[in-house]
Amino acid sequence: MADPVNGNARRAKSVDIYAPQWRNFLFVAPYLVIFAAFLVFPLFWGIWLSFHKADTFSSGPFVGFGNYVRLFRDGIFLQSIWNTFYFVFLTVPALALIGLFLALSLNRQTRSAAVLRTLFFSSSVLSVTIVTLIWRIVYIPDFGLLAMIYGFFGAKAPAFLSNPDLAMIGIAIATVWWCIGLPMMLFLSALQQIPQDIYEAAALDNANRWQTLRSITLPSIKRTFVLVIIIQIVLQFQLFGQPWLMTRGGPNNLTKPIVLYIYDTAFRRWDLGLGAAASEILFLLILVAAMAQYLVTRRKADA
């Protein structure tokens, strides 16, 4: 006759859902391997390279903070930092505010709103090569679309890509046109999560549109606004394709961002140590800017 005590113990052991199951690690192992190979290892390898005088063929001798000292003595690198911050200042607020305006305007269940949402989002699926080609045609002096529009009014179009004062603004306009789809869709998603009962209650209290926007809509999407700002800061700090294809970083390095400086240093001058140091500076700038924006926005939202 079987022992009922031992049988119950075996059954309890077989259904113990809290027991460690190491074989479950196999389900996440592929992701962890890819994550370590393409993110964790390059991060630490870049830090290691930044402390060495490295080129394409060898890591070279250890130089400590020598590469960082060289960076901050390089006027072109300092100019690239200013260019990057200037570009972020031009694009991130514009993307957030224009995206919010479009979302508020197109948050309707109509066919025309659906068509317009599709049109505004369609630019986001284009590659940077196509986007820059379109805007180079727009900016062509005397023959471009902008020159034709100015010509109707008897005026001369500004030379966006050759004027030192306007080149970065021209790149920023093209970038906002290209990237506006993602902020718009994020805001639309947040707006559609707001219960309609709240708006109906506000209408019964005779609240106008401005009062509804200020007291209901904006407080309800404040977390999405923070998310959009942080995403755009991270994305726009990585500016590369637009200035490379539109201006080659000119005129006079006034549109050369940090990523383009890293590309020139590491892959055209083959100074991998200096390029790695510049990439670590870029990483710290993105981290500090995103965290500062998050803390400031969160403090205002909680106030």
Rank of each mutant, 00 (worst) to 15 (best):
I231K: 03
V125F: 14
I149N: 06
D55A: 07
P42V: 02
R136F: 00
P195R: 05
A12F: 12
Y86W: 10
T118N: 14
V296L: 12
N6E: 15
L106T: 11
T297K: 10
T247V: 01
I34H: 05
P257S: 08
L245A: 02
T129A: 13
F38W: 01
R10N: 08
A172S: 06
R108N: 07
L260C: 04
L32E: 06
A103Q: 07
V115F: 12
Y139F: 13
L145R: 02
Y31L: 11
A172E: 00
E280L: 15
I194L: 08
F35A: 06
T212A: 13
P243N: 01
T297R: 14
S124L: 11
L104Q: 03
K256R: 14
S189A: 15
G144D: 01
A96R: 00
L126I: 07
E200Y: 06
Y68C: 03
P195F: 03
Y263C: 05
A54D: 01
P158K: 02
L272G: 00
W210F: 10
P257V: 03
P195G: 02
R108M: 06
T265A: 09
F225A: 15
A292K: 01
V259G: 02
L39K: 12
L204I: 13
A167C: 03
K300G: 06
K156S: 12
A103S: 06
C179I: 02
Q192L: 15
P61R: 03
A278Q: 07
D197H: 10
I76S: 10
R214A: 03
Y263P: 09
A96L: 04
G75S: 15
E200R: 11
M184N: 03
M185R: 09
I81S: 07
V40S: 03
T129M: 15
V288F: 10
Y199A: 02
G75M: 10
D55I: 02
W210V: 11
V69R: 12
N208P: 02
S162I: 01
L106G: 06
F153K: 01
D197E: 13
S162G: 15
G7W: 15
D165F: 03
L71I: 02
L272A: 00
R248C: 00
A174T: 08
D271R: 09
F41A: 10
G64A: 05
T212D: 11
A113F: 03
A96N: 00
G241F: 01
K13D: 06
N83H: 08
A155H: 05
R298C: 04
D74I: 03
M1I: 12
V5W: 05
L213T: 06
S162D: 04
S124I: 05
F240Y: 12
R23Y: 11
G64R: 04
Q232Y: 09
Q293L: 15
V40A: 11
P195L: 04
W135D: 00
L285A: 06
L133H: 07
T129P: 04
S58D: 10
S189L: 10
E280T: 09
G170M: 09
N83F: 09
W178E: 07
K13Y: 05
W178Y: 15
D142L: 09
